[in-house]
Nucleic acid binder design. Structure first.
Lengths: 256, 256
DNA sequence: CCTGCCTATTGACCAACATCAACGTAATTG
DNA sequence: CAATTACGTTGATGTTGGTCAATAGGCAGG
C-alpha cells in the first residue's frame, strides 16, 4: 500500500503521474449531482454532452497527487468527490498550504499562466475527479457562451478567495484566523448538503497552521480554548460547532 | 483641487464615478508601446483594431478611484501610465491593501465572479487607463483565440501572484517581506524599461505595511536597518537599491 | 512666511505567538 | 501483542513585531 491511514506516503509513489490509461471513465455531466456547483452551471443538455465528450472521470486515492509543481499544465480538475489540498514548497523547503478544496471546486488554474503548475495537489481522502483537458475546454468555451462565462467566474472566484485569505493573513490574530477557518469550512459543508455543525477535518493541525500562517501548537491551543469556552467540540479530527454565533463574534471586534 | 500632493482626498470626491462622457479617447492598441505587456500580446493588426473599437482611454488624477467595492462590475481596466493600489475595507473598518499595480497590468478581475467589485482601485499618481467593457471583451475573445488565451493567462497570473503573497504573509518575517517587496518592485520597474536600482515609492509606509501585513513603524525600521547596512538608500520615498544580492540573501536563510 | 496636516523616524515597553520540550494517544506494522 | 510512527496536547520560555509616544520634516494653503 502506498499510503497509511494518515495519508502519508510510505513508499515511493508509483502511481504518479496518474496513469491516463487505467480506470478512466467518460464523464456524465448531465447526470452529475454537482452540475449546479460545477462549471456546467446553466448549460443545456446538448452542451453538457459536448463536455462529456472529452471530460474523463478518475478515482484518486488518499495521498495521491493529481499534479506537482513544475509539471506541464494540461488540464483543469473538477473535484467530484473528496477533499484536496494544494501546497507549495518554498525555497527553504517548507511546505505552505495554499488551499483546501471540496467537491464542485476546480483546481489547476494556476497552471494556465505559464504552462506549468506552481503548486502540488494532493488528495486528503479517497476522491474522484473530472479531468478537463485544457485545450479542448478552451475550444469549447469559444463556442458555448455560458460555459465561457462560467469558466471566467470560476477564475475570478479563485482570485477573490485568495484575496480573502490575504486579508486573513495580513490582519487577523491567531484565534480569529481559526474561527474564520472553521466557519468557512462549515459554510462550505452546508452548501454541499452536509452537516454544517459537525464534520471530520481531513487535514492535520500542521496543515491548518500552514494554511493560516500559524504553528501547529497555536492551532491546537486555539482548538482547546474554543473547546473550553463551549464554542466547539473537539475530539481529534472530529469537530462540532456548538456556538457559531460565538465564533462569528470573535471576528468582529478585532483590537489589532 | 480634490486631492493634495499626497493624494489624500481633501474634499468630497466629485469626480467619482468617473464620467464616461468627458476626456474619453478611443484607444489605439496598435500604436501602444505596451502592446507586448498588455492583453494585446500576439494579436495581429486587424484584431488590434477590433479591440480599439470599444476600448476607451482615460486620464485619472492622483487620488481618484476607478471603482469601489460594491460597484457593479462593467469593465476591466488596463493601466497605460501610472500607478494604482487596490484595497479592501475590512469589517472593522481597517484598510487592507491587496495590490500595487503598474503599467501593463489589468485590474478589476475580482468583479467577474459576482458582478460587482470587492475592492477599491485608487490612482497613486496621475495615470492613464484603458477601459475595456467586459461584455464586449468576452464577446471578442470568443472570436479571437489568442485574445482568449491571453486573457486567461492574465487571470491565472493574478491567481499565482496572490498565492505568492499568501506565502509571503504566511511564512516570511518582517525584514524578509520588505526585502521581497523591494526586489519585486525593482523587477517590475526593470521589465517596463525604468531603472531597477532607483525609483520613487508611490505609496506611504502605512500602505506598504498594510500590503505586507506589518505596521508602518516596522516598515520604517526595516528601511532604516537596510539603509544602515548599506543595502539600500532611503530618502523619504526615494529608494536606491545598492546591494540587490544582499537583499536576496535575506530571503534564503529563513530561520522560521 | 507661518500654520497645520500628513508622513516618517526612533525609542521604550509589552503581548502574541513561536520555539523547545515532554508527554499522551490513535492507528499501523511486524 | 509489542513496537513504531504520526499526530495532538500542554507547559515553560524567548523573540518578533505590535503598541504607545515623542519628535521632526515636507508640503499645502492662507
Amino acid at each position: 500500500m502506498l499510503v497509511n491511514r494518515q495519508g502519508k506516503l510510505t513508499a515511493v509513489d508509483q502511481k504518479y503521474p496518474i496513469p491516463l490509461t487505467s480506470s478512466n471513465i467518460r464523464a456524465a455531466c448531465a447526470q452529475c449531482s454537482l452540475r449546479e456547483l460545477c462549471l456546467a452551471v446553466g448549460l443545456d443538455n446538448e452542451d453538457l454532452h459536448k463536455l462529456d465528450d472529452f471530460v474523463i472521470r478518475r478515482k484518486i486515492k488518499r495521498g495521491q497527487q493529481i499534479f506537482r509543481a513544475g509539471d506541464p499544465f494540461e488540464a483543469l480538475y473538477a473535484i467530484r468527490i473528496g477533499f484536496f489540498k494544494t501546497d507549495i514548497l518554498t525555497e527553504e523547503g517548507l511546505e505552505q498550504v495554499t488551499g483546501f478544496h471540496m467537491a464542485g471546486e476546480i483546481i489547476g488554474m494556476d497552471g494556465i499562466s505559464n504552462d506549468y503548475h506552481v503548486c502540488n495537489a494532493t488528495a486528503l481522502e479517497d476522491s474522484e475527479i473530472c479531468i478537463m483537458p485544457y485545450d479542448q475546454l478552451e475550444e469549447l468555451s469559444r463556442h458555448i457562451k455560458s460555459l465561457q462565462q462560467q469558466f471566467h467566474k470560476f477564475m475570478s472566484r479563485e482570485i477573490v478567495r485568495d484575496q480573502s485569505l490575504m486579508i486573513l493573513l495580513g490582519s487577523m490574530r491567531a484565534e480569529e484566523r481559526i474561527a474564520a477557518f472553521l466557519l468557512n469550512l462549515s459554510q462550505r459543508m452546508r452548501v454541499r448538503g452536509y452537516s454544517a455543525s459537525e464534520f471530520h477535518l481531513r487535514m492535520t493541525r500542521e496543515e491548518i497552521g500552514s494554511y493560516l500562517g500559524l504553528k501547529l501548537e497555536t492551532v491546537s491551543r486555539a482548538f482547546s480554548k474554543f473547546h473550553d469556552e463551549g464554542l466547539i467540540g473537539v475530539q481529534q479530527k472530529y469537530i462540532r460547532i456548538l456556538n457559531a454565533e460565538g465564533l462569528k463574534a470573535l471576528l468582529n471586534h478585532a483590537p489589532s
